Deep mutational scan, measured.
Amino acid sequence: MQIFVKTLTGKTITLEVEPSDTIENVKAKIQDKEGIPPDQQRLIFAGKQLEDGRTLSDYNIQKDSTLHLVLR
């Protein structure tokens, strides 16, 4: 499925993911596309910070959802 990741600069990254993918996995995909190390990434969805060990389906993230990427 496709999800979107919006950065603070207003750029939107499109990712191909599975509901069973972990947040860690998603961060690795963002690193592949953007070169941002996962340890600098914070992903936010519906006002919640997403934890590495959980999956997209744990957070009820569905296709065409938009996550927000904050760098630390």
Rank of each mutant, 00 (worst) to 15 (best):
M1D: 07
M1E: 12
Q2V: 10
I3A: 01
F4I: 07
F4E: 09
F4V: 10
V5A: 04
V5R: 00
K6I: 04
K6V: 08
T7F: 06
T7D: 09
T7G: 03
L8P: 11
T9Y: 04
T9V: 05
T9F: 04
T12W: 06
T12K: 08
T12L: 07
I13A: 07
I13N: 02
T14A: 04
T14S: 14
L15D: 00
L15F: 14
E16A: 14
E16I: 15
V17L: 09
V17R: 00
E18L: 15
P19D: 11
P19A: 06
P19I: 14
S20W: 06
S20I: 07
S20Y: 15
S20E: 04
D21Y: 13
D21A: 14
T22Q: 10
T22G: 05
T22S: 13
I23T: 04
I23Y: 02
I23H: 02
E24Y: 10
E24K: 13
E24F: 07
E24N: 02
N25L: 09
N25H: 07
V26R: 00
V26L: 15
V26D: 00
K27R: 12
A28G: 08
A28M: 06
A28P: 01
K29H: 07
K29Y: 12
K29M: 15
I30M: 11
I30Y: 05
Q31M: 03
Q31R: 13
Q31G: 05
Q31Y: 10
D32A: 14
D32P: 03
D32G: 10
K33Q: 11
K33R: 04
G35P: 02
G35F: 07
G35S: 13
I36W: 13
I36T: 15
I36H: 13
P37W: 08
P38Y: 13
D39L: 04
D39R: 15
Q40F: 05
Q40H: 14
R42S: 12
L43N: 00
I44Y: 08
F45H: 11
A46T: 09
A46K: 13
G47M: 07
G47R: 03
G47Q: 07
Q49A: 12
L50T: 07
L50R: 00
L50A: 02
D52L: 06
G53K: 03
G53I: 12
G53V: 15
G53R: 04
G53H: 10
G53N: 06
R54M: 15
R54E: 10
R54G: 05
T55W: 13
L56E: 00
L56G: 01
S57W: 11
S57L: 13
S57Y: 13
D58N: 11
Y59P: 00
Y59E: 13
Y59W: 02
N60F: 07
N60D: 12
N60V: 11
I61V: 04
Q62P: 11
Q62S: 10
K63M: 15
K63I: 09
D64P: 06
T66P: 02
T66H: 09
T66N: 12
L67Y: 01
L67V: 09
L67I: 08
L67A: 01
H68N: 14
H68D: 07
V70F: 10
V70W: 06
L71A: 15
L71Y: 04
R72A: 07
R72S: 07
